[in-house]
Amino acid sequence: MLLDFTDPPSKGERLSEVWRRLHGTGPFSMANEALARFCEILNAVEDELSGISKDLAAAKAGNTGGRMYPPDEMFQIDRDHPLITSYRQTGHITRFGKNGSIEVAKKFGDVEFYLAGTDGRTVSDLLQEKTNESP
């Protein structure tokens, strides 16, 4: 345990810890690997710091009880970009590039987190490539 909070950490602090651990673990080389590690790290941080037990059945029904959950198939959107898989959750869009890159952006705001794949390219680079390829 690397954090020493006198108070239970806020969601913002827990998310910062997720980003910190992802930076420490990555980069990744494939989308599946990036998604798996993203889920693993978010679940681990919530297990350690949220004080709220994981309840997948309740979460599927929309009752997350103050705990943050990673995306799954239910949240997948966009089928039109060959290099990126995107997931929409209430306020965020999480994108995983085929090269293992990750980007978490607010639906109506800035990118909160990004990590390039092992080839050095970010999700933003991949989106740009698609745009450049377009006639």
Binding site: R67, T90, H92, K106
Partner: peptide, 16 residues
């Protein structure tokens, strides 16, 4: 699960 209404600008991530 029917309809849900949320504050788009909520602080957390991946909540119902």
């Amino acid at each position: 699960r029917g309809f849900g209404i949320s504050d788009t600008l909520q602080v957390g991530y991946g909540e119902g």
